[in-house]
Write a protein that binds this DNA or RNA. Structure first.
Lengths: 210, 210, 210, 210
DNA sequence: GATGAATGAGGCTTCATTCAT
DNA sequence: TATGAATGAAGCCTCATTCAT
């Protein structure tokens, strides 16, 4: 599990500050984290943060956008492959969960401080966050169109449920209310997909014609 | 849709302050909301807030606990009825969504400032929040035991997925990324249950024997 | 050692409040002591304090003046007796030290919050406090006039030194930097008088004629 | 008489703040003095006080310790010289009184807000304050051992009486109940020593053998 | 007399941000 | 680039006091 700080290859101070911010934000939370905490973590003077970023907010914005854009690209790329929808969803869940596995601090910051903090940063990035929902909804919609998914539920709701399940699981790991580890990570991917795609009912009511 | 402020029947200043806080927190967010905003909204003097509550935090704590305890009781009560698990889940989703329908500000505050704000108040109330998950997991577990639910997924994961889906939908309404209205509320209840219980797959893989 | 609270004979609420204030002020200090602390200690509602006293200040003023006036009377009375100056000083030191012995909380409040707090209450009562110095100075002055005390030092200075010594000793007891007990109390009286009257020098330089 | 503010030679803002605090504390008293008063007096921004000091308290602590440590060193140094005890006491009284002469505001703050304010700052610095008493008591004790001082009184009491006399005199100057001026300063030194060492009695009772 | 709800002024402290060097 | 001294707005909370009952 590579720590955020280790990602800084050389003397790129901007990168060092970003990586330090991940640790600082994850440790103290964005609000409680002072700019000087970031600078201390990065071993630079705190004025330097303002050399590279307009504000403390911009540091978090940058962190979020860097990662979220990767997520969007990955989802799009997954969707480009000729896979069954269920496998596409599994691939998406895998990517997100593996992101947490590889850099839990960064995912903690993104989820806790942005994605789930709709009143502060989430507000700013609402549109960006929705893009992910919509890409997922697209996958569902196309699967419904080709008959591999049932049409009982709108793609939008299906996407919300899918993403909501992932976020709840990540939150459980982040705040240690759910056991985590290699086995749990892979199990979670399977369970989330199984719940959303397979459903809980033992005897499913016959599918209504749409 | 009854606003929080209107609920105060008489001259109970404590209640008035709590109701005013709902409006104030919902409007500006907990952090951005000053104690004087609450007092102004309640039409009482600044200091009176501190006569009834030790701190601004305690106001939110009180608001959350009042409502969350009702939720816990309702879930327990629902579970007490001899209903199919699917209907129990529908009843729970109904209660939560109707809570939003009847007092959107209060639910907004609880979800945005507590339930989804794991870094601040959520942390404090983590145990309380988990109680709800566990009650839901119990329902799932018992349904798996009696064969009405499949056992592909652990009750814990099922509960997370179920609650996660509800929370995402509420968040969508709260931040206006999802259309809301009477029809949408009832539809959402059905969709959430259908997604979690029915699953998305048109042709479900045969259930593994437990 | 009679505690302040026990002095309240009957249901005299005013007296109960004053006695409670002694305990409260002694325990928390005047500034840190809230009006409600006094009321709690007296087992009355705190509004009642304002029925009997105009302000929190007036409570302390009352406490101080009650006792200080007794001191002034006692000094005057002692001075009225046909005693050697040295014995008069011993009687004064005795009265003050016994006051502490009988009600340490009250003396603590008077010394810590008034007499030694020249920037707050001492300022208000400066004139009253000086009266004591002047009565003592009078005793010294008369003794110098009749030849029983030397005239090397002005009566004013002698009085300051005498009272200053007493206050330092009381302060030592109050803040537990000096051992206290029955033996120490009587010893202190003797030592203070011996220091001021006898002097420390083994071989005193011959007295200069005035 | 150099005012505290004038002592700041250059642009050392920390020093300027400390010197300004002396003036501000002396003028309004510690409690009534706002941090902004200090900043205004120092002509710096509000927040700079917090750049150099953790709190308003720390400003006073610093002021006290700076000066009191000098006092302790001076007493120790005086005691190091081969002087008669009486002259050592005179030197100590001289140093303290001259401290007041050279910077009355600083001494006012130290005495009124720390040394005589045993309920607030004095409490914190009790041990430090006692160190001075003990150094003085040492001088007395050694003089008693070599026979130059009588042993009627314990060194501890003698030290309390000596320091108490000085403090009373300074308090008299600080609150203008005692005339002050060059002549008075020198006279006070002599009078205090004369009172404590020479004693007031014209005919001293014969010294008891120890 | 007695209660305690209601009032509201006042100040310490934090910390993001700027800027001279 | 890099530093960290300097700025100052903003808000929580305390608590003496008032007053209706």
């Amino acid at each position: 599990m590579a720590s955020s700080a280790q990602r800084a290859g050389g003397a790129d101070k901007r990168r060092m500050i970003l990586d330090a911010a991940v640790v600082a934000f994850a440790t103290r939370g964005f609000h409680a984290c002072r700019v000087s905490d970031i600078a201390d973590q990065a071993n630079v003077a705190y004025g330097l943060v303002y050399h590279y970023f307009r504000s403390k907010d911009e540091v978090l914005d940058t962190l979020f956008l860097e990662r979220w854009n990767v997520l969007l690209e990955v989802i799009a790329e997954i969707d480009g492959h000729p896979l069954p929808a269920r496998e596409k969803l599994h691939a998406i869940a895998s990517f997100i969960i593996d992101s947490y596995r590889h850099d839990p601090d960064l995912m903690k910051v993104i989820i806790v401080e942005v994605t789930r903090a709709a009143n502060s940063f989430g507000r700013t990035h609402l549109a960006k966050i929705r893009e992910a929902y919509e890409l997922i909804a697209d996958i569902v919609g196309k699967a419904q169109a080709d008959g591999s998914f049932r049409s009982e539920v709108t793609p939008t709701f299906a996407a919300l449920a899918f993403y909501g399940a992932i976020e709840q699981v990540l939150t459980g790991w982040i705040f240690d209310t759910l056991p985590q580890g290699e086995a749990e990570f892979d199990q979670a991917k399977a369970f989330i997909v199984e719940t959303i795609c397979g459903g809980l009912d033992a005897n499913r009511p016959s599918t209504r014609p749409v």
